[in-house]
């Protein structure tokens, strides 16, 4: 297990380094002048020269990248002042260190993504399990219709409708607000219910369909039939034998979906006016705040890669064959 984890972590580090390099070079090495880009529409030569100096744009791009990476691991001295260890530079717009902005914003996105994932796993897998147990019944058909519709709606369509219906008209749920885990843990959860529910809808169908077909497949396996023949109850066979076989592929699908979950979180944050990483990315782009964009990109990529390792580790725990290969 340890060897497996070490191998995965090393691979992840390589991937992250490559992503950072590609992103950096795309941002800063394209013929478009990043200084002019960050300067915006009302730009004068003084600010342009200042930005160029602050960014170190007089250096060749590989040197700039090297300094950037040194900054992330060791910290670096910048024109604004010293920037300690995880240094992603300073935001053009707010002059704040990028790292502290990221630290302020990430709890919202993580809470939203985690709650959303929990909800869609419970609902999706649950619908799939019941459909598999009651194949061909009305429930099966309704569940597949519901999840098909869920897959086809868009967060930016149902989000405002959900706020209008559940928050403004019925008043059942909060319109959604940023979590504050240290001061208000209960409010952090209740404030996220509506956004997380809305985000989860688009993921239901994939999981319910996959779970259903995997369970149907598992239920016709020999070991399941043997278990039935030994006289075990159907419920026990269903939950202990068939479900365990179906879990592995579902976890793999979940790992592949993490990036989409993050993408869904961006649109959900924007729709519900939450201040997370997605909303930060959008505002960084509209303000052409390059260091902030770069920081969010890398942070997001790292989060997805780390989450993927955790998912792989879970898979290895459930299915020992993975560890040995």
């Amino acid at each position: 297990m340890l060897r497996f984890l070490v191998r995965r972590v090393l691979g992840a580090i390589v991937i992250l380094l490559l992503i950072s390099a590609v992103t950096y070079f795309l941002f800063f090495a394209l013929p478009a002048d990043p200084a002019a880009l960050s300067c915006g529409k009302n730009c004068n030569p003084q600010t342009l020269a200042l930005i160029r100096k602050n960014l170190g744009l007089d250096e060749p791009v590989p040197v700039q990248y090297w300094q950037y990476m040194i900054g992330i691991f060791l910290g670096r001295n910048m024109t604004i002042g010293h920037c300690s260890a995880p240094c992603f530079g300073y935001s053009f717009a707010s002059q704040q260190p990028v790292w502290s902005t990221l630290m302020n914003r990430y709890p919202t996105t993580v809470t939203l993504a985690a709650m959303g994932a929990l909800i869609f796993l419970v609902i999706g897998v649950g619908l799939g399990l019941i459909s598999a147990a009651r194949q061909g019944t009305a429930f099966d058909k309704i569940a597949s219709a519901v999840s098909l519709t869920g897959q086809s709606v868009q967060i930016y369509f149902i989000g405002p409708l959900a706020i209008y219906l559940f928050a403004d008209t019925l008043g059942w749920l909060s319109r959604g607000h940023d979590p504050d885990w240290t001061h208000d843990p209960v409010g952090s959860i209740t404030g996220m219910i509506l956004p997380a529910m809305v985000m989860s809808v688009i993921f239901w169908s994939n999981y319910s369909r996959q779970t259903r077909s995997l369970m149907v497949e598992q239920l016709s396996e020999d070991h399941v039939r043997t278990a039935r023949a030994k006289g075990m109850t159907s419920r026990y066979v269903f939950m202990r034998y068939a479900l365990r076989g179906a879990m592995g592929p579902i976890i793999t699908i979940f790992g592949m979906d993490l990036s989409s979950v993050f993408g869904g979180a961006i649109i959900t944050e924007y729709t519900f006016g939450l201040h997370g990483l997605g909303q930060l990315a959008v505002s960084a782009v509209t303000q052409t705040d390059l260091p902030l964009e770069m920081g969010v990109m890398l942070f997001g990529a790292a989060a997805i890669v780390i989450a993927n390792i955790i998912v792989d580790a879970c898979y290895a725990v459930i299915d020992p064959r993975i560890r040995l290969s």
Partner: peptide, 17 residues
Amino acid sequence: LMMSFPQQLFFIAFTPV
């Protein structure tokens, strides 16, 4: 490598670039 890029973020960040 391409698959491990955060897609949505990438689209948002690079359209203006």
